[in-house]
Computed example of a mutant assay.
Amino acid sequence: MAWSTRQLADLAGTTIKAIRHYHRIGLLDVPERASNGYKQYRTEHLVRLLHIRRLSDLGLPLSQIAEMSDGDSDESIRALDDELAATIERLQRVRAELALVLRHRAPTDLPAQFGPVAHNLSDADRALISVCARLFTPKTMGVIHTLAAVSDDTDRDFRGLPADADEDTIKALAARMFPVIRTLQEQHPLTEEPAAQYGTGPTSPASVVTQALADLYNPAQLRVIHHVNDLLADDADR
């Protein structure tokens, strides 16, 4: 007894279009035809079609199934399993990140851990943190998170400093910020290596951070940062 293409499709739970496609790409042998010209499928075709569907349902692409012999499926399935394991691990990390975002209502432009302190950050701060998250390790970002959580009068004055602030105002603010930053640096030293491997040119972490500061903060704020760095350097020399 033989089956028509429609009957074979129904038996295998697939479609006539799929069977014809399998014929075209060499996955399924074309059967003999009856005297009336209709294809006559037999058990061997049904078994092969069921095998194709099984491998396809497991996630193997048709191109790979076409290249497989009956005995070499183990290697392909093992490779697929490794790929799926990596995908599951990535999705689990994504779900953990999403849980933090949802729990803290964190903005998606920041690492999830910064959600609770996002309200303390200016647009420039958030942009700089986003850049740093690419450059530095999670441990270093944990220190930056601790620093970002600090919000006092000097911090608010720095964020609100106008671009045309005079030099006396700039120096006075730097003098007020210096002891706070020195204490934070002593408590949370940034001693880790960058997370990504960059060269020494314009893509080095220091160069990227310097460029980001120049692009994100106004001239008066940059002058404050410069003065604070000078005070820190003088203090270190002493």
Rank of each mutant, 00 (worst) to 15 (best):
V228P: 03
D123F: 07
Y41P: 01
E32N: 10
A18L: 11
I65R: 00
T43G: 05
P205C: 03
A118I: 05
A163Q: 15
V94Q: 13
A66W: 08
T191L: 12
N36I: 05
R48H: 05
I170R: 01
Q113I: 15
Q185G: 05
Q64F: 01
L46I: 06
H21K: 06
G37M: 01
A212G: 05
A2P: 09
H188I: 04
C132L: 10
P205Q: 02
A163G: 14
D168A: 14
M177N: 14
L102A: 15
L128K: 02
A214R: 12
E167V: 15
L147R: 10
A12L: 03
Y198L: 13
A118R: 08
L222Q: 11
H21P: 00
A148Q: 06
S56L: 09
E97H: 07
G142E: 09
L231S: 12
V150K: 10
D215W: 07
R182M: 02
L128P: 01
T14P: 01
I129Y: 00
R20I: 08
T191N: 09
A236T: 13
D235V: 07
I77W: 06
L11Q: 10
T14S: 03
H23C: 02
P205D: 03
A96M: 12
R78G: 00
V47I: 13
A220P: 02
H145P: 04
R33M: 00
V224R: 07
A18Y: 10
D166E: 05
F136R: 00
D82S: 15
V208C: 00
V30E: 11
I65D: 03
F178K: 06
D74Q: 12
R176C: 09
I181R: 09
A2T: 14
R182H: 08
S56Y: 10
P162R: 11
I19M: 08
T210F: 12
E97R: 14
G13Y: 04
V180W: 01
L80R: 14
E97N: 10
I129V: 11
D166M: 00
H227I: 14
I65F: 00
D125M: 02
P219C: 06
G142C: 03
D235F: 04
D10S: 13
Q40A: 11
E67P: 06
N218D: 07
L147M: 06
R159S: 09
H227M: 07
V143A: 10
L46E: 03
A124G: 07
A34C: 04
R134L: 15
R53S: 10
S151M: 13
H226A: 14
A85I: 08
A172C: 09
A206R: 12
R238H: 07
T15F: 09
A236M: 13
D74C: 10
T210V: 04
T203C: 04
S207V: 05
H104K: 05
S151L: 12
L135P: 03
R53F: 04
H145M: 00
E97G: 00
Y41I: 04
L62V: 07
C132T: 07
A96P: 08
A236I: 12
R176Y: 00
N120Y: 10
K17N: 08
A127W: 05
F114V: 06
D109M: 03
Q197V: 13
D157I: 13
D72R: 02
Q197E: 14
S207W: 02
I225A: 12
A175R: 15
T169D: 15
I170P: 03
T200H: 08
D152L: 02
A233K: 13
H227R: 15
E67T: 15
V208P: 01
R24G: 06
L147H: 11
N229I: 10
